[in-house]
């Protein structure tokens, strides 16, 4: 039996006259050789019918959507129009409020922390935090050193051992 037309009949192509002729020829050949593929053929093409119908429904439902023009413009400006350093401060209005607010708080906090004296990161300086913010030095029992950022953050890192 010539199975070529049966191998992949449901890939979105409608049946042509030639395909139908091939099927009928293969069918009658099989009958003459003592096989009866009628049931199998009908089942295959019934399945193909359902799949073709489903593919057409998907085609109708899955339509392309147009992104917001303002978003497209703004992102292009950010990517092309401004240097990367300035892009940090560009208002990211396409983000949702629940994302924007914590992000803003974190950014302001990070900028604030960068202005604090390094010694203020320790808990003993906590009461004088406000004073440190204004540029006053924290009360210190030992001579003031200026540890690097890495050493200041060391207690926050997870211990591996």
């Amino acid at each position: 039996m010539r199975t070529m037309v049966l191998r992949d009949p449901h890939m979105g192509e409608s049946m042509t006259q030639e395909t139908l002729e091939d099927i009928l020829a293969a069918h009658v050949d099989a009958l003459l050789h003592g096989d009866d593929p009628t049931g199998a053929l009908v089942a295959v093409y019934a399945a193909a019918r359902d799949l073709l119908y489903l593919a057409r429904r998907l085609y109708a439902v899955m339509v392309p959507v147009e992104p917001n023009a303002r978003f497209v413009r703004q992102l292009k400006r950010e990517l092309v129009g401004k240097p990367a350093g300035v892009a940090l401060f560009a208002p990211r209005t396409w983000l949702r409020a629940p994302v924007q607010v914590p992000a803003s708080v974190k950014l302001v906090g990070a900028l604030g922390a960068s202005r604090l004296e390094p010694g203020c990161r320790s808990s003993r300086c906590a009461p004088t935090w406000r004073a440190c913010w204004r540029g006053a030095r924290p009360p210190s029992r030992s001579p003031r050193t200026s540890p690097s950022t890495a050493s200041a953050l060391r207690p926050l890192r997870p211990r591996l051992l």
Binding site: H10, R49, D50, L51, L52, Y53, L54, R57
Partner: peptide, 20 residues
């Protein structure tokens, strides 16, 4: 092919008469 077949199983979608 497998994706369409899986979706058909999931939805029980059969082409109504005349749909195509």
């Amino acid at each position: 092919h497998r994706t369409l077949a899986a979706l058909r199983e999931e939805l029980g979608a059969h082409a109504p008469e005349g749909a195509l």
